[in-house]
C-alpha cells in the first residue's frame, strides 16, 4: 500500500468522502440561499432551521404515519416549501420596501421560534433515522469502503444542484427569474406576475433546505440544533463564493467541503475554522467573492 505524506490512503479517502458529503450539504444549502437572495434580496437566516425541520418531518412521517424514506424525500421538502410560502405571504412580503437587514432579522427570529419549538417537544438528544434498506451496506472499492447511502447523498445532491442550475439558466421560467433579479419593476410591467415569482422562489429555496434535511437525517441524528451551526458555515461559504452566480454557489460548496476534509487529515485542530480562515483570505484578495460580481 502506498502512503501520501505518511497518511494511509484509507484515512485520506475516508476524510475526502466525509468532506464531499459535507460539501454536498453546503452546496444544496448555499444554492437555496443564493436563489432566495438573488430575487428577494433576503438572507434567509431560517435556512438552517428549515433544514432541521425537513429532517424532523421525515422522522415524523416515519414514526407517526409509517411513511418511509423515499416518499419522505418528496413530501418533506414539499411540506417545508409550503411552510416557506406561508412565511413569505404572511411576513416576509411586508418587508420588501425596507432595508434588507430587516429580512435578516425577521428570519433570525423565525429560526429561534422553529428551533425553540422543536427543542421543547423533542429535547436536544438526537433521534435516530434508519438508512433505507435499498441503500444499506456498502461496496469495497479496494482502497476504501464506500457506504451506499453516502454515495447516494453525493449523487442526489449533484442531481438537485444541476437540475436547479438547468432550470434557472436554461428554461423560460428561469429566464423570467433572472430578468426579475435584474429589474423586477420592468419585468412586472411586461406582464409577468413578479409577486408570484417571489413566493415560488422562496418556497423553492426553502424546499431545497428541507430536501437537504431529509438527506441528512440518516447520516446525522435528527436533532433541533443540527441546522444552527451549519447555517453559519454556509454563510461563510456564500461569502467566499459570492451570491452572483448559481454555479458559483454549487462549486464553492463542494470545494470547501473537500478542503475541510483534507484539513481534518493534515491539521485536525484547524478543521473547524479553516472555512472562516479562507473567508478572511478571500475578503483580503477578492472582497466580492470568488464568483461574485462587484457590488
Amino acid at each position: 500500500m502506498f502512503e501520501l505524506l505518511g497518511i494511509p490512503p484509507q484515512v485520506l479517502m475516508g476524510q475526502l468522502l466525509l468532506g464531499l458529503i459535507n460539501g454536498s450539504f453546503y452546496a444544496v444549502l448555499s444554492l437555496g440561499l443564493a436563489v432566495i437572495f438573488g430575487l428577494l434580496n433576503v438572507i434567509n437566516f431560517a435556512h438552517g432551521a428549515l433544514y432541521m425541520a425537513g429532517a424532523f418531518v421525515a422522522w415524523m412521517l416515519l414514526n407517526y404515519l409509517g411513511v418511509g424514506y423515499w416518499p419522505a424525500l418528496i413530501l418533506a421538502p414539499l411540506a417545508v416549501g409550503i411552510f416557506g410560502i406561508v412565511l413569505e405571504r404572511t411576513m416576509l412580503s411586508r418587508l420588501y420596501h425596507l432595508d434588507h437587514l430587516y429580512g435578516l432579522l425577521l428570519t433570525f427570529g423565525l429560526a429561534l421560534i422553529i428551533q425553540g419549538l422543536f427543542r421543547n417537544y423533542y429535547g436536544i438528544s438526537g433521534l435516530p433515522y434508519r438508512i433505507p434498506s435499498a441503500l444499506a451496506g456498502g461496496h469495497n472499492l479496494g482502497f476504501m469502503f464506500l457506504p451506499n447511502y453516502r454515495a447516494w447523498v453525493i449523487v442526489a445532491s449533484i442531481i438537485v444542484c444541476f437540475g436547479t442550475w438547468f432550470m434557472i439558466e436554461k428554461t423560460r421560467l428561469g429566464a423570467y427569474l433572472r430578468a426579475a433579479t435584474e429589474n423586477s419593476a420592468l419585468v412586472n410591467a411586461f406582464g409577468v406576475n413578479v409577486p408570484l415569482l417571489l413566493v415560488l422562489t422562496y418556497g423553492f429555496g426553502t424546499a431545497l433546505a428541507g430536501f437537504a434535511g431529509v438527506l441528512a437525517a440518516p447520516i446525522y441524528s435528527v436533532n433541533p440544533n443540527m441546522g444552527a451551526d451549519l447555517i453559519i458555515i454556509v454563510f461563510a461559504v456564500v461569502v467566499i463564493g459570492g451570491m452572483g452566480s448559481i454555479m458559483g454557489a454549487i462549486v464553492t460548496g463542494y470545494m470547501l467541503g473537500i478542503i475541510e476534509g483534507l484539513t481534518r487529515v493534515f491539521y485536525p485542530e484547524g478543521s473547524s475554522v479553516v472555512i472562516f480562515v479562507i473567508m478572511a483570505i478571500v475578503l483580503l484578495i477578492k472582497p466580492e467573492g470568488l464568483f461574485g460580481r462587484a457590488a
Binding site: L106, G109, Q115
Partner: peptide, 11 residues
Amino acid sequence: WVTVIQGVIFV
C-alpha cells in the same frame, strides 16, 4: 420557551 419568546419578540 425563552428562545421561542425571544423569537416572537424579534418577529
